[in-house]
Design a protein around this nucleic acid. Sequence first.
DNA 1: GGTCTAGAAATTGTCCGACAATCATACGAT
DNA 2: ATCGTATGATTGTCGGACAATTTCTAGACC
Lengths: 253, 253
Amino acid sequence: MSVEFAPLTLEPAYRKVAAAIGARILSRALVEGERLPPETELARQFRVNRSTVREALRELESRGLVQRRAGSKLMSVSRPQQGTVAAGVSHALMLHDVTVRDLWEALTILEPPIAAGAARRRTDADLKCVSAAVEAFAAARGDTEQAVQLSAAVFRCLGEATHNPVLGLAHEPLLRLLGPSLRIMIDEVPQARARIATAHRRLLDALLARDADAAQQWMARHIRDFRKGYEIAGIDLERRVTGVTDPSANPAS
Amino acid sequence: MSVEFAPLTLEPAYRKVAAAIGARILSRALVEGERLPPETELARQFRVNRSTVREALRELESRGLVQRRAGSKLMSVSRPQQGTVAAGVSHALMLHDVTVRDLWEALTILEPPIAAGAARRRTDADLKCVSAAVEAFAAARGDTEQAVQLSAAVFRCLGEATHNPVLGLAHEPLLRLLGPSLRIMIDEVPQARARIATAHRRLLDALLARDADAAQQWMARHIRDFRKGYEIAGIDLERRVTGVTDPSANPAS
DNA sequence: GGTCTAGAAATTGTCCGACAATCATACGAT
DNA sequence: ATCGTATGATTGTCGGACAATTTCTAGACC
């Protein structure tokens, strides 16, 4: 046998540049808010063309590691926003043919402990976040879309209230996928709003009393209700979750 | 009041192009495996320069929506690989100062139900996946790094065995973050390997018997053991989880 | 007919240079 | 000190170029 050589530099330059900058950010050598050097300067340092640098920046940008601050030209280092990451995960789940059942099962697992943790560790600000969403939901009589959003907002506030970023980030993609089926359910099942509002109130009470057990129980019931709602609304549990209605779905005419 | 104008086209062209192509993929108008038109063709269709198209492609690439198949030039549509998405999430969590406690709490919540689901729905192939990892772990006496990887592999196989992609994707980032602290624990706590191996065996037994309760119980105990291990190893629970040791951390010299 | 090969065409990765629009800064006027 | 302005820096986009590599096409051969 001859000497073996490893295949080398299969990676294009733009990815190497992105990896180099990304590693600096992940290692915290570049901290949040710090401004990146201009593209020409990066090109000079890496000994590469500005176009190549720009391609690398697009990758870092979409990973949420760099960001252009509003009304500013220079890129600055940033931590990935929760929304950015969650969108990626929910898109991935959609494309992997996640069913309503899969989603529901995950909620069954995640949300009750989240509610319990929220009851244990909520601050007054968290309480305000939840109660605002709960009240707005109860008030949103007509508007289905708003009701769906507010229902998700309650979950979101509970996630925040755990003060555990892992939990917040873990359930955010689920909330995004929940939208479409929840919308159908609220429209088709007359008693859905009332049951959700009740669960909201009980959850709020449990949070107020810092009663983790009650919060967990009511959340579990809340999620079970979803399933009943699906059945009543005639939503097939094996149906794939549909895409989130995205305002950017604007086909180039 | 004067007429209101919405702020317009703050979005650069490269992002619009990426959004347009991305929307087609998410709406399944472009399906997995399909080859994207060449860059020049895309540039012609969108009426933009090829450089602009390339920047858009870099974004889609990093979101995992398009991919270059090995040794091929053309881009093809793909669903985001689990690894790609999980890497993004774990990076985000790192940068958001997630602590060992946060991570541990999330594992406490997620893993026991995952084990239960795995026991309920595992196939023979899943069983083989788990048992292979379990045996390899028991056999990997010396190599800490391998033991860590195999320990994660057991979790990963269990996640697969639930046949619920949501659960698999939800816990994958946690497994990646687990590495560093687990490595320390295995090195510092003499009995760690034995306890982990025992838990593995019990989990495997439960899977074999399709005993969801036993699987859940043993997994809960397994995770509780982690916490004890952290304490014995002197790992501060409030410590931030450190970065995953990344082979691409190659600073441009 | 099927398979193989060589040349042609297409495609990507990278470079260079250019320019308008916008942002940042320094500087002078009020 | 505040404001407006001129100047320079930076980004977004464009056009063109070229080498390396892949894909396609058309014969050549069995």
